[in-house]
């Protein structure tokens, strides 16, 4: 009976194992992620999005659903993004060059150009930008570059929406939210996915509602949950109460190993002790 059960299951597993694997990627050839798992997402207070027929206020309203319908829904990741309203206006943000801090050619070109270079930012900042060099085509909706690092940790990332065309403005609200969420994916360190079911696929799809498996695995890798307690400590009933604390450092989560060790502790010695007594009973020692 037991052998039949084993064979049956091995056959079933062989079938199951033929499932295709998914594979998310990183922006960089190192695992770059924000040092802090609480990251604010701002809209530049002086941004102009005339060609896309969208006001800065409307842009701010897109952020919260982009966070809560996508990246903040992953319980295996401790990343918690917060829609933080407007940031102080950044020079050149509406038409300057956006460069990676390691791309010296781009930086030199930007400094030498009449539009100038967009300076590095903290956290995540969203703005509209009309410098065509940044986008490489009018059908490119937006570009994101983490442009401030501390070692291998991201300190700030800039998301610019293409003001060279009005394609972004012509999207439905849900598509705009998905585009913002996709760009935030780049800002937190993720690259593109080959899977079109994933948010990090390189283009928009017919209907985008949630993250794909790749996105979930990627954000869980970059920002692993280090032991939440049923959502209490890391995700934050405490941290949600923004009026109490402005401290960005989350309370340290309890070590999950404690529970794991307890289960293991119970699993092994309890079973042996119990089994020994059962055997004793069987031999009439009770």
């Amino acid at each position: 009976m037991f052998m039949k059960f084993l064979i049956m299951n091995l056959l079933a597993l062989t079938f199951f194992l033929s499932e295709k694997a998914l594979a998310w990627t990183l922006n960089n050839n190192f695992t770059g992620s924000f040092k802090d798992n609480r990251v604010n997402v701002y809209v530049d207070s002086g941004t102009v999005c005339k060609n896309n027929y969208i006001t800065p206020d409307e842009l701010v309203e897109l952020i919260e659903p982009a966070l809560d319908n996508y990246w903040n829904k992953v319980p295996t990741s401790n990343l918690r993004l917060k829609a933080a309203g407007f940031s102080k206006h950044i020079d050149n943000i509406n038409n300057g060059r956006l460069c990676s801090p390691t791309n010296e050619t781009c930086i030199n070109d930007g400094i030498g150009s009449p539009e100038g270079l967009i300076p590095a930012v903290n956290d995540i900042v969203i703005a509209c930008n009309s410098n065509g060099v940044n986008f490489g085509g009018s059908n490119v909706l937006a570009v994101t570059i983490p442009n401030k690092y501390s070692g291998r940790k991201i300190v700030g990332a800039l998301i610019i929406i293409n003001e060279q065309s009005s394609v972004f403005g012509g999207l439905s609200r849900s598509d705009k939210i998905a585009v913002i969420a996709h760009e935030i994916g780049h800002a937190i360190g993720l690259g593109h996915s080959k899977e079109n079911a994933s948010l990090m696929y390189y283009r928009t799809v017919e209907q985008r509602k949630r993250l794909g498996q790749d996105d979930i695995d990627g954000v869980s890798f970059l920002y692993p949950m280090k032991g939440d307690l049923y959502g209490f400590s890391e995700n934050g009933l405490i941290a949600n109460c923004a009026t109490i604390s402005t401290d960005k450092t989350p309370p340290p989560g309890p070590p999950p190993f404690i529970t794991m060790l307890i289960v293991l502790f119970l699993f092994v010695p309890c079973s042996f002790r119990y089994g020994r007594r059962i055997r004793k009973k069987d031999h009439g020692t009770f």
């Binding site: 319980p75 939440d228 049923y230 959502g231 209490f232 995700n235 934050g236």
Partner: peptide, 8 residues
């Protein structure tokens, strides 16, 4: 997962 945190 995250039983006490409705968002996630």
């Amino acid at each position: 997962f995250a039983a006490l945190e409705p968002r996630s």
